[in-house]
């Protein structure tokens, strides 16, 4: 962890992808992607469906290995590192569909996120004394995403919007240095999207954010820098304003999705 602080000062990239590719049988889902994300950066990953955004997320998170290229996280080569160890390096993510634990309460869900990055969490008989701060952290994270009043609710009973909030609360609670959100606004109402945007804008500046988002209002408000993907490749990079003005981007994506809506 001390290493990380050092790197923040020199502004070394927190995440560096070099020529990353992934092939599923005959499908080249991700092809030769180079990506550098600096500490504290807010980066949006855009692209039409099937562009390879989620596959890229899964590669960064370590769900499966890339078929080409290398991935560096916090200055370490993690290309071969299993997902659970990457999480413990300080990376948290959410999924397109909220993957929450439906048989557990809201508090327990977030608590598991807090507990997962602690050392020695496997030991069955941790004392409650050592556990109390983790529980407190979980409750604080629940309050932060607006679920403070529903700590004891079974997650199976939550609405879609509340599950999205919970997913973000879980990602936050692990106190990651790199947070990756996969379409956090999907399926949310206008009001809920507004709350989500506020929440993302309020993230501490030392948290690096990588965001896949189809909702332009959310993505372009939150992101400082945008990477545009198409057919598994990066086709454009720039500030939100540059991306809005880019003709390729319009043809591929915004033209059909943003302005017609």
């Amino acid at each position: 962890m001390a290493v990380a602080a050092e790197r923040t000062e020199t502004a070394e990239p927190i995440l560096r992808l070099r020529g990353v590719g992934r092939r599923f049988g005959g499908l080249q889902a991700v092809d030769g992607v180079d990506l550098e994300i600096r500490p504290g950066e807010r980066r949006a990953l855009l692209g039409p469906n099937g562009a390879g955004k989620t596959t890229l997320f899964n590669l960064i998170a370590g769900e499966f290995p890339p078929t080409a290229g290398t991935i560096e996280l916090f200055g370490e080569d993690v290309t071969e590192t299993p997902a659970r160890l990457r999480a413990r390096l300080g990376m948290a993510r959410t999924y397109q569909q909220s993957r929450v634990f439906v048989g557990l309460s809201v508090e327990d869900n977030i608590y598991l996120s807090v507990l997962g990055v602690q050392t020695g969490h496997v030991f069955p008989l941790r004392s409650a004394k050592r556990d109390a701060p983790l529980r407190a952290k979980a409750r604080a994270a629940a309050a932060e995403v607006g679920l403070g009043g529903r700590l004891d609710s079974l997650v199976g009973e939550l609405s879609h919007g509340e599950r999205r909030q919970l997913a973000i609360g879980m990602a936050r609670a692990a106190e990651p240095r790199l947070m990756m959100l996969d379409e956090p606004a999907a399926g949310l109402s206008r009001g809920e999207r507004q709350i989500l945007t506020e929440l993302l804008l309020a993230l501490p500046s030392d948290v690096t954010l990588l965001l896949i988002e189809h909702d332009m209002d959310v993505a372009l408000r939150v992101a400082q820098w945008v990477t545009m993907m198409h057919d598994g490749r990066v086709v454009a990079e720039g500030t939100p304003a540059e991306i809005r003005a880019n003709q390729t981007v319009h043809d591929l994506y915004l033209g059909s999705r943003y302005y017609d809506e």
Binding site: A61, G62, E63, P82, A83, R84, L85, A87, R88, A92, R93, Y95, R99, V100, F101, V102, G103, L104, L112, S113, G116, V117, H121, V122, M170, A174
Partner: peptide
């Protein structure tokens, strides 16, 4: 029990 893959990405063995 609920989602082993999610647990893996939370840092659990």
């Amino acid at each position: 029990r609920d989602d082993p893959e999610r647990m893996r990405s939370l840092g659990y063995n």
